[in-house]
């Protein structure tokens, strides 16, 4: 059974979101997602400073058998990326909610986060998949 921490929000496309004290959000992919993809071999990261529309593709995670887009959960600007992933994509497999974080975003407006899922709702979604 994959881990789904209670304190995070999730998307239907298997990203997780963590609200940071400074108002920014950190995102990554869920334990369930990394398991489904298998050993990651490459992560394509956006440039810091890029502005993203909600739902826009902002990164790609790639395993031997699949490549999966990461979507911006809200309209935002990229303020940091996890540069370690360029050399060590396996961090996402090893620690998806910690050292495997992908990027930090600063939302550009008061976002509508009603589409985000709670840990419980995401668990239901992951169980169906």
């Amino acid at each position: 059974m994959s881990k789904i921490p209670e304190d995070l929000k999730y998307t239907r496309s298997h990203e997780w979101l963590k609200s940071m004290p400074d108002g920014s959000i950190e995102i990554g992919i869920s334990d369930h997602a990394q398991e489904a993809l298998g050993d990651l071999v490459f992560v394509e990261l956006p440039e810091v400073g890029r502005s993203l529309a909600a739902g826009e593709t902002c990164a790609v995670v790639e395993s031997v058998k699949a490549a999966s887009d990461i979507y911006a959960p809200v309209a935002a600007t990229v303020i940091a990326i996890n540069a370690q992933l360029a050399e060590a994509p396996e961090l996402i497999n090893q620690d998806p909610y910690g050292r495997g974080w992908i990027m930090r975003l600063k939302p550009t407006a008061q976002g509508d986060d009603s589409a985000l899922l709670s840990a419980h709702d995401y668990q239901v979604l992951a169980a169906e998949a």
């Binding site: 395993s63 058998k65 887009d69």
Partner: peptide
């Protein structure tokens, strides 16, 4: 690097 290719990435 097959994840670039049509049999995996399909429309993308």
């Amino acid at each position: 690097l097959q994840a670039r290719e049509q049999h995996i990435r399909r429309a993308k």
